[in-house]
Design a protein around this nucleic acid. Structure first.
Length: 899
RNA sequence: GGGCGGUUAGCUCAGCGGUAGAGCGUCUCGUUUACACCGAGAGGGUCGGCGGUUCAAAUCCGUCACCGCCCA
């Protein structure tokens, strides 16, 4: 074995990943006695490809799962994807369109065949890409929401909830996407700021020629469907009109003027037109006042007059049925222009003001959503939400960070009926059949429905299944248990439900977290996960959200190609603090790649110096302070790493590893080890250093494996710590008792500080590095001198000292001086240093300490502080003051010696 | 309009009552054979403003400003 001078992730990563998969290293074991640890992913969209958001969330999850797996837990990380009804159907329709085909021509069955074919060819993109990241998902257990088993779970749930009255049909307003021609969820609607206008329309008052009520609207085209004008009951000018009627221009309909607090006297004119079939607020007003609710836009958002045909009336100068009929078939945008022009012609347009408003857009289709009155299937989410809210209130499920539970509560406490039907072909077909008279029979299959129909009608009747499919989230909500075999009673279900943690971004709380909680509690009787860890979003270096339109999207696969998966993963961990977005760019990944390289090179040094795993090495038997110091520091790092991971502090975990490897192992241990390993050094000492070095390198590899699995596994294998690809399954290290750790810490701490002081003085005094200098210790105790003697080689090497000795007599002329505890460190550098500069340096040092001392003295001079502060704080400050004063005295003495 | 989060060194961020920190960048120095994807040293902050609580405030409370997100 000889390690290359650079770690080559591109060669190593695929080989190790294949090795892990081949060895079955990612597999859970339902037959084991170990305590399970389960992470259910919010399943990614089958049409998706890996983006930085995935890289973030899967890196964190993989870090957790690898850590728990090493701790001996029976880890299940359940992979899979959801079928993404709308997105997938759009993808396949686009492919068909390229071939000049249309799904309606080919028919439902052929279209679905085509979707499955697409899924077989392209649906594995993201799962392949997750492997590049190193994600250790239990792939043989991969599930898809349209699988038979998961489909059975959907049917079971639908039928159960229907029978409980929690699923029902209702006619109400939905968010309708006119492009996709389906209902969509509130959560699939994004409000976009659009520069529009506020049009002020004059509606004539019935029976009072020449009088108008002026309504302000952002959507004049909907006026065809107006069935009232609402004013605030207390409105000074318009309040008196309540109870009268207005003539709806163009249409000629007589509509009431109603009093409703929905009308905001501050907005527009204070009077608002009411179109119950095309606006959610107006719908509520319509219900309160029992208004008609005609739709004037069809499924494509084209004008239709079918529902207002019988109220059209010709009123000269106000309304013209021919004009209205002429709008039929026009888009809502064209109709708007035409209506405004006509109103203007009739003198019924008061004015137009520029207006910026929030326009709801379908997030997939990209066109403005049209509220539309349709019959859909609904789930009574308010009932399901109650136990979900309670589970978080009582701590059965805990949010980390806790503040996110407010977001969860806010949404669930105000939850609207969940529209679960979609006018799509790709998805779980709603298990409802209709008889000839429209009676609904809900059953898991057609035979069940037929049986119900027979009982109902007393004979066999032809049934037709509902054409619609279910919202994708209906099946995603079941994911934490449907993937485990439910509704079958499987040992996996028994063992891995509830899961331990759901890891996701805050934007997903409404989507998956809330729905999984509701369905898990209702169908399984228990929460789906005990902890919900919420991380931030990935942004670019400037903090901007990554988006295709901004052109600032970073492809994680490119980062992996360039810097390696470990570098990307470590960067993500290091930057993932609590409740923070992660600003990430190539530069950051490059920086952290330095750490991977550092680790690699430290290992190379070990290799070159005969540091290799020794099964006989016993850390409790080490003799050298350096060994004890290193083991003690490793204990600290391990404790920090564990505490950090327990608390989901990925940044602190990464920092603990970084500090230990770089600042303890490399900067000091390996440097101190060099003379001890040199030729002619004490053989027993060298053997111990090799032993402890190998032991601690092994600890490092284990401790960092969850974050940087590839480089650690490669080194583990190459050094022969275990069989090939075995690190992933190796036990997580625990701190061990280190004899005399306190003394070792004191000793090494002193040596490190001494070297630091000498280096600092030399650098500040511009001593040429090639000029070694003696290091003289004045006022040093016998113990300190003995210590210096033990470390003389290291001090020579690292502090550029020619010798280290006690200084008995006077300080030689032209020396530089510094204070280390009770000792004054003297560097005789006559001719090499500028005495004035040295004087200034010492004075500055003294003044700095004096300033500190002054602050502490002022504190101690305050009787309130001494009497009211905690005793240990007072004592600590007394000690600090004493130390400062002693240091000042020594610096002062050093200054005087210069004269 | 309501809610949440943020404002600490040039940048990215920890710290959240008792000595202001890290990483990166900057400057100076370095052919010390693990590593220049390196080593050594240095400089750099009235912890957004203003009030308050406290012996003590970056940290707790109030208020304002600015930035970002979510919901109307």
């Amino acid at each position: 074995m000889t390690l290359d001078s650079r770690f080559a992730p591109g060669d190593v990563e695929p080989r190790l990943y294949r090795g892990w998969e081949r060895e079955g290293s990612f597999a859970c074991n339902p037959d084991s006695n170990a305590q399970p640890y389960t992470i259910m992913i919010p399943p990614p969209n089958v049409t998706g490809s890996l983006h930085m958001g995935h890289a973030l969330t899967f890196t964190l999850q993989d870090t957790l799962i690898r850590w728990r797996r090493m701790q001996g837990r029976d880890a299940l990380w359940q992979p899979g994807t959801d079928h993404a009804g709308i997105a997938t159907q759009m993808v396949v329709e686009r492919l068909l369109a390229a071939d000049g085909k249309d799904r309606r021509e080919m028919g439902r069955a052929a279209f679905l065949d085509r979707v499955w074919q697409w899924k077989a060819e392209s649906g594995g993109t993201i799962t392949t890409q997750l492997r590049r990241l190193g994600a250790s998902l239990d792939w043989p257990r991969e599930r898809f929401t349209m699988d038979d088993g998961l489909s059975a779970a959907v049917k079971e749930t639908f039928v159960t909830l229907y029978n409980e009255g929690l699923i029902y049909r209702d006619r109400r307003l939905v968010n309708w996407d006119p492009k996709l021609q389906t209902a969509i969820s509130d959560l699939e609607v994004e409000n976009r700021e659009v520069k529009g206008s506020l049009w002020y329309l004059r509606y004539p008052i019935e029976g009072e020629p020449g009088d108008f009520i002026i309504v302000a609207t952002t959507r004049p085209e909907t006026m065809l469907g107006d069935t009232a004008v609402a004013v605030h009951p207390d409105h000074p000018a318009y309040g008196a009109l309540i109870g009268k009627r207005a003539i709806l221009p163009l249409v000629g309909r007589s509509i009431p003027i109603v009093g409703d607090t929905y009308a905001d006297p501050e907005k527009g004119t204070g009077a608002v037109k009411i179109t119950p079939a095309h606006d959610f607020n107006d719908f509520e007003v319509g219900k309160r006042h029992d208004l008609p609710m005609p739709s004037i836009l069809d499924r494509q958002a084209m004008v239709t007059v079918e529902e207002i045909a019988d109220v059209l009336a010709a009123i000269p100068g106000v309304a013209d049925p021919d004009f209205v009929r002429g709008l039929v078939g026009q888009s809502r945008f064209a109709a708007r222009s035409a209506i405004i022009a006509e109103l203007e012609r009739l003198g019924l347009l008061e004015k137009i003001e520029p207006h910026v408003n929030q326009v709801p857009h379908g997030d997939r289709g990209g066109v403005p959503v049209e509220p539309r009155l349709t019959t859909q299937w609904y789930c009574n989410a308010a009932v399901l939400a109650k136990p979900a809210i309670e589970a978080v209130e009582t701590g059965r499920t805990v949010f980390v960070p806790k503040q996110w539970e407010n977001t969860f509560f806010a949404w669930l406490r105000d939850i609207q009926p969940w529209c679960i039907s979609r006018q799509l072909w790709w998805g779980h077909r709603i298990p409802a059949w209709y008889g000839p008279d429209g009676t609904v029979f809900v059953a898991k299959d057609e035979a069940g429905a037929a049986e119900q129909a027979r009982a109902h009608y007393g004979r066999d009747e032809a049934l037709s299944q509902d054409e619609d499919v279910l919202d994708t989230w209906f099946s995603s909500a079941l994911w934490p248990f449907s993937t485990l075999g439910w509704p079958e009673k499987t040992k996996e279900l028994d063992r891995y439900y509830p899961g331990d943690v759901l890891v996701t971004g805050f934007d997903i709380i409404f989507f998956w977290v809330a729905r999984m909680m509701m369905m898990g509690l209702h169908m399984m009787g228990d929460v789906p996960f005990r902890t919900v860890y919420i991380h931030g979003l990935v942004r670019d270096e400037k903090g901007q959200k990554m988006s295709k339109s901004r052109g600032n999207v970073i492809d994680p696969l490119e980062l992996i190609d360039t810097y390696g998966a470990d570098a990307l993963r470590f960067t993500i961990c290091a930057l993932t603090g609590p409740g923070r977005d992660v600003k990430l760019g190539a530069a950051r990944v490059q920086d952290y790649r330095g750490f991977i390289t550092k680790l690699w090179n430290a290992a190379r040094f070990c290799e070159m110096n005969g540091i290799r795993p020794d099964p006989a090495f016993d850390p409790s038997q080490v003799k050298l302070p350096l060994s004890r110091w290193l083991l003690d520091a490793a204990n600290t790092a391990l404790r920090e790493a564990d505490a950090a991971l327990e608390a989901y502090r990925f940044d602190e975990y990464a920092a603990a590893g970084y500090r230990f490897v770089w600042n303890n192992f490399c900067d000091w241990f390996l440097e101190f080890a060099k003379p001890l390993l040199a030729e002619g050094a004490d053989a027993a000492g060298a053997a111990e250093i090799r032993g402890v070095g190998a032991h601690v390198l092994g600890l490092i590899l284990r401790m960092l494996h969850p974050a940087i699995p590839f480089v650690t596994e490669e080194l583990w294998d190459r050094f022969g710590y275990g069989a090939a690809c075995s690190l992933i399954g190796t036990a997580w290290p625990a701190p061990v008792a280190v004899p005399d750790a306190e003394a070792a810490r004191a000793e090494l701490d002193w040596v490190i500080r001494l070297i630091g002081i000498v280096r600092s003085v030399r650098s500040e005094m511009n001593v040429p590095p090639a000029k070694p200098s003696p290091v003289l210790l004045r006022d040093a105790s016998a113990a300190v001198l003995a210590r210096a003697g033990r470390w003389i080689e290291a001090i020579r090497r690292l502090a550029r000292a020619s010798d280290v000795q006690a200084l008995g007599g006077d300080v030689p002329k032209g020396s530089a001086q510094a204070v280390l505890d009770e000792t004054t460190v003297v560097l005789p550098l006559q001719g090499l240093i500028d005495i004035d500069a040295e004087r200034a340096r010492l004075a500055k040092e003294r003044d700095k300490v004096a300033a500190e001392a002054k602050k502490v003295r002022q504190k101690l001079d305050n009787p309130d502080f001494v009497s009211r502060a905690k005793e240990e704080v007072v004592a600590e400050n007394r000690e600090r003051l004493a130390a400062f004063e002693a240091e000042i005295a020594r610096l002062q003495a050093a200054l005087q010696r210069l004269e």
